[in-house]
Design a protein around this nucleic acid. Sequence first.
DNA 1: CTGTTGGTTAAGCATTTGCTTAACTATAGC
DNA 2: GCTATAGTTAAGCAAATGCTTAACCAACAG
Lengths: 118, 118
Amino acid sequence: MLNQQPGLDRMFHALADPARRAMVERLSSGPASASDLARPLPMSLPAALQHLQVLEGAGLVRSEKVGRVRNFSIEAGALSLAEQWIHARRTEWERRLDRLGAYLETLIREGEHDAPDK
Amino acid sequence: MLNQQPGLDRMFHALADPARRAMVERLSSGPASASDLARPLPMSLPAALQHLQVLEGAGLVRSEKVGRVRNFSIEAGALSLAEQWIHARRTEWERRLDRLGAYLETLIREGEHDAPDK
DNA sequence: CTGTTGGTTAAGCATTTGCTTAACTATAGC
DNA sequence: GCTATAGTTAAGCAAATGCTTAACCAACAG
């Protein structure tokens, strides 16, 4: 089995790093150049560029070079895959807990009028 | 800056591996023992245990030992952190795109009755 | 008590990450 | 054309990952 989804792999891996998340947060409020994104981070520019490559490889971010500066922007809707996966898990286990709750309730009801005393 | 959140780090990192996601998927539909979880995976039991440790370290999963078997179950609501982060990003950039759209629209409207011809 | 099952611990190893520095290319401004 | 700026490429390195096998411990079953 093992739901093979390289998309989710790369997506979650990309989001697992605080520097990369910071970049995504920054880009959520508008496009920015490579050095704009690198400046606030405590690392060299090549390092920041590597992070951006990871984000782009995960499809979270798009980049376009204009003149000598490379501008990055959010790939709108890219996170929906991750969002869907998480949401699926949540609903799945919530429904399970609901069923469990209902079951326990029937046990209690039955106990109310047909209980063997402890 | 760099929104330091080890919780998100570990959470996303835990979800970045297909074997670990498979385990979470399996646990979403009910508790299971260590070997139950390891069996479908193409790896040794110690390897699977290491994955489970990662999941537990990320707070996604809880385990309790009864007799000689260790039972794992989903930590309900653990994913909400990740869900919140993703949702925040989505709404942020959607609002931005809305504003951008509105701005472009005003440009068009202005153009309609006050256009310098091309 | 003895064997089998379920799990744990430890050591070792190949690969991947996340950074660095240094050298280089390409554009923009004067 | 010179020079400063923005980015790219490459080499190198320490640490973290993801596995393996082997040895071990604990509990239940006969």
